[in-house]
Amino acid sequence: MTTNLGAETAQLPPVVDGPQNSDGTPRTEDRPRPRGRGARNRLIKHLLLIVFGFVMLYPLLWMLVSSLRPNDEIFRLTGLLLTTFEIQNYVEGWNALRSPFGHYMVNSMIVVMGSIIGNLVSCSLAAYAFARLKFRKRNLLFAIMLMTIMLPIHVVIVPQYIIFSQFGWVNTFIPLILPKLLATDAFFVFLMIQFIRGLPRELDEAARIDGCGHFKIFTRIILPLMLPALATTTIFTFIWTWNDFFSQLIFLTDPEMYTVPVALRSFVDSTATSSWGSLFAMSIVSLLPIFLVFLFGQKYLVKGIATTGGK
């Protein structure tokens, strides 16, 4: 696992990977490293960083190992060494609820995919208008958009619930996906605006002179260039939607419609404290998609966080 992580990050462009000299070259690589005290200090630093990282990840690793242990061992063994290899927990956990766990994963996947498509389409359209077009009230709308990023969901969820339940949409995925189709995840609008602002305007101008309308400029010029921002949006939407619990708990009360987080939590309630093994097994299963997205998409994750956080 660790080598994979290393290989993945090695592909990051140097600008993300380390500070540079003012002339743009990486600061340390080509320089001869001084020996002696400096080298020893560096070694100690690396050791401390590794130990600290290990301590941080220990609960996760321990959960993974414990999910492969018989139940009586989970409460006895604190180490990471596997003496037995028990796949039984996974079989039991998978079939512990009314439907096999795969059913909930499919449900989650539907919500995730719908949310991703919604965010990609609606947020990129809005971002293009804010970043490139002139219209009256642009500043006002832009400020409103920024403020909605910080709006707590609680202040809209009660009326949303009332309306959606009157439409008969509770226990469907519509309340979870529809808002994404309408660009309510304003964070991504902002992320894309930032990205479009960084693209040279000359491209738009050239296309306009060639007779392209705004929609054509958007689809032919801007969209292909903003693929990195779309990738970041996809990955964040995946992780946040997969993890989202509050709204899924509220809108999905029929066990058939449960998504992974809601199913997992109903599993917690229905399990006796003695069967942590199968609970751990399904927890691992539920974390696996996020972990995979993290492995393959961390370049975009890191960039996404870094660019929106920058001043």
Partner: peptide, 9 residues
């Protein structure tokens, strides 16, 4: 055009 782009939002 702006308001068309902004319509979903």
């Amino acid at each position: 055009a702006s308001y068309l782009f902004l319509a979903p939002w």
